[in-house]
């Protein structure tokens, strides 16, 4: 078995709009090892969800550019045609829990009919009883009572519905699960409960997750690695243990210092200004306009520099592999 489960190379996703192409995902590359969790963090509109949708090829009609390589288990799934992708990848190898998943259940179908569907569609030999047994098993794992299967979505609370959608994503035993803001619409205690469930799944089954969130606090519950996105680009990626204390990119640092903490009293700072428009982003570094450490070189587009601890940063400050102080 390959140690690397997913490798994304130079992934681009541009949308066509009346104002011009929107560069939602621009030249993003990363690797994700089996059984690990990558948290993608960033402000709203930075392309986190577009990245997830690009990986799963859930695209709207107004696509202008969709290119790059997505290598899953050694195979470039970008080469697959639509039918092949639907049959072999979507929900079979990669599943997704969409944003506000609790509202994504069909209100007029019982939970069981919805959850069982991917199992029956993706496996022709699957008989209904076997599928039902599998779904019941999934319900036990996410911590829902079995009889809830026969209820309608409105009879469940938000946290329970969220867990049902997670059960649905896991039912086909996919290798990679993309979670898009799984906990942001939930209450604090429900959220903590859900993170416990996800953590248990991760430990017991070795499922690989991509966790998309803007809440770095909750991300730290699950993430082995953190990727920071800004204006469609991945500006930094590193191991979680280094990120919280030793983020490198000026944007990541600002982002970390804007996170309020409960246990530690620190001065909060905010990032003045706004992210650039993705229709006509700056040619150079996209963060330069808001960056306190910018210098002449920032008007050119920075490449990705590899630093120690397997840390990757897209910033000119690290040209020599070490942070350079510019006056």
């Amino acid at each position: 078995m390959n140690k690397t489960l997913l490798e994304v190379k130079n992934l681009k996703l541009y949308f066509r709009t009346s104002k011009g192409p929107v560069q939602a995902v621009d030249d993003v590359s990363f690797k994700l090892n089996r059984g690990k969790t990558l948290a993608v963090v960033g402000e709203s509109g930075c392309g986190k969800t577009s990245l997830a949708k690009a990986v799963l090829r859930l695209l709207p009609r107004n696509i202008m550019v969709y290119s790059g390589e997505i290598i899953l288990d050694g195979e470039d799934i970008m080469q697959y045609n639509e039918e092949q992708f639907r049959r072999d990848i979507r929900w079979k190898k990669i599943a997704m829990v969409p944003q506000a998943a609790m509202n994504s259940l069909n209100p007029v179908l019982r939970i069981v009919d919805q959850i069982i569907e991917p199992l029956l569609i993706h496996d022709r030999d699957m008989i209904k009883d076997k599928a039902l047994a599998r779904v019941k098993e999934m319900f036990k794992i996410v911590g829902l009572p079995e009889d809830f299967l026969y209820r309608y979505p409105f009879e469940l609370s938000g946290g329970m519905r969220q867990r049902a959608t997670i059960a649905m994503a896991l039912a086909t035993n996919p290798e990679l699960v993309i979670l898009d803001e799984p906990s942001s619409a939930l209450d604090l205690l429900t959220q903590a409960n859900l993170m416990n469930v996800l953590k248990r799944i991760k430990h017991d089954f070795g499922t690989t997750f991509i966790l998309i969130t803007h809440d770095i606090g909750t991300a730290s519950e699950l993430a082995d690695e953190i990727a920071v996105m800004y204006a469609g680009e991945m500006v930094e990626k590193c191991h979680a243990e280094y990120f919280y204390t030793d983020a490198r990119h000026p944007y990541s640092r600002k982002l970390m210092s804007s996170v309020p903490t409960l246990r530690e009293d620190k001065e909060l700072v905010f990032i003045p200004g706004q992210p650039p428009s993705l229709v006509n982003p700056p040619i150079g570094c996209r963060f330069a306009e808001r960056c306190e450490q910018r210098f002449a070189k920032c008007s050119e587009h920075p490449p990705t520099f590899d630093l120690e601890h397997d840390q990757q940063v897209q910033c000119w400050l690290y040209t020599a592999g070490e942070e350079v102080k510019h006056a």
């Binding site: 903590a192 606090g217 909750t218 730290s220 519950e221 903490t261």
Partner: peptide
């Protein structure tokens, strides 16, 4: 206890 601060 349920509130998470960013911490590895």
């Amino acid at each position: 206890k349920a509130t998470s601060d960013p911490d590895a």
